[in-house]
Amino acid sequence: MADLIVQQSFPEPRPTTNPYLVMLRDSIRELPGVELRTFSWRGALLRRFDVFHVHWPEILVSGQSPVKKLVRQGLTLILVGKLAVTRTPIVRTMHNLDLPQGISRRERWLLALIERRTTLRIRLNPLTPLPADAAFETIVHGHYRGWYAPYARAARVPDRLAYVGLVRRYKGVDALVATFRKAFAGTGASLTIGGKPSNDELVEQLHSLAAGDRRIDLHLAFLTDAELVAAITASELVVLPYREMHNSGGALSALSLDRPVLVPSNEVNGMLADEVGQQWVQRYEGDLTPAALEAALAAVKSIPEADRPDLSHREWDDAGHAHVAAYRRAIALLRGRRRR
């Protein structure tokens, strides 16, 4: 019988669910004495549990229609009230630094309420800023090697660059396409873009930027895991030109498939390079330029075919144990049995 019941904020996974959540679920469920429940409103509101773990709290208060959104916001308020009455801690993973753009005042108020009620925060890297008095644990994002193992790898195509992942404005995919067109004159270089864009305007812009350049292949749709593995492994270098970059599952996806990445130069990415090997994490200063693309591609050609980045600090067994320890600490903190 479980002595710790964990209620997660995500529902039972579907094919499109972020693999991070699925691997987290599985790593915790494998531990003795722990019951992990995926989210439903009925279960969250009516059943007893020991800790509530929320990942992207904005999902709780959003909806596909005004009526559905309003209902969810009311249910969220009831849930937070239940957690307060039952002295059930909220543990929150800090995936993003900022609130989503374009949300209403009511959504901001509810998210602030969840923030005030949070007992312990989990950060994915040691540079995530936190309130001065916040209790926290640092549990790094696990790798994807086991997740991608069932899928066939493609043969590496010389001089191929790739961007793979959700296509969002802040991820700089438009800048990548424009910069690539100016680079690699007279070479056989190519660029693959694969992923679902956030809106039709971005689709039109990317098609316009790539028009007439046969070196650029756009696959602007959701990628299955098999398609993602094929796109990454066919490349020599995965380029992630995010305008803001703090935690990147995309970088870990590429590294898990033994492909180097080119990312903006910042402290977080410098730490990642120190961890996995400098040659695997190429970096550029300022805006992405043709020279940065050319230099990074030249640099990664010296990586031996059999080499792999060091992901030994990102095992999911370790992450599962660390999360359970964090849950138990949150319970103790809320019930006054331990100091921060």
Score class of each variant (00 low, 15 high):
Y163F: 15
D200L: 05
L202R: 11
L191S: 03
V177F: 10
G165I: 11
T138L: 01
A178C: 04
H141F: 14
P150W: 15
W147K: 00
A175T: 05
L166R: 15
G172C: 05
H141N: 08
V173I: 11
L218F: 13
A210I: 06
H141M: 11
H141E: 07
L209M: 09
V173S: 04
R156D: 00
P158H: 02
L218C: 12
F180Y: 10
S208F: 03
G188P: 03
G165M: 05
P197C: 01
K182L: 14
H141I: 12
E137M: 09
H219D: 12
T138Q: 06
D217Y: 08
H219G: 01
D225E: 15
T192M: 07
D213C: 07
D225W: 14
Y148L: 00
Y144C: 05
Y151Q: 14
R160W: 06
G142T: 04
A178E: 14
A135N: 08
A162P: 05
P150I: 07
Y170L: 00
D133L: 01
A185V: 11
F180T: 00
T179R: 12
V157I: 11
L228A: 13
Y170E: 01
V177L: 10
F180H: 02
V167Q: 09
L161I: 10
G186E: 09
A226E: 15
A226I: 04
P197A: 01
H207V: 01
A149S: 12
S190R: 14
V140G: 06
L223S: 09
G188T: 09
Y144D: 10
N199H: 15
G212D: 08
P158L: 00
I216A: 02
E227H: 08
L206V: 08
F184A: 03
G186K: 05
G172I: 04
P197E: 02
G146R: 14
A178R: 14
T138A: 02
S208R: 15
E204F: 03
V164M: 06
E227F: 09
R181L: 03
A189D: 12
A149K: 08
R145L: 15
Y151S: 07
G188C: 03
G172P: 05
L218W: 15
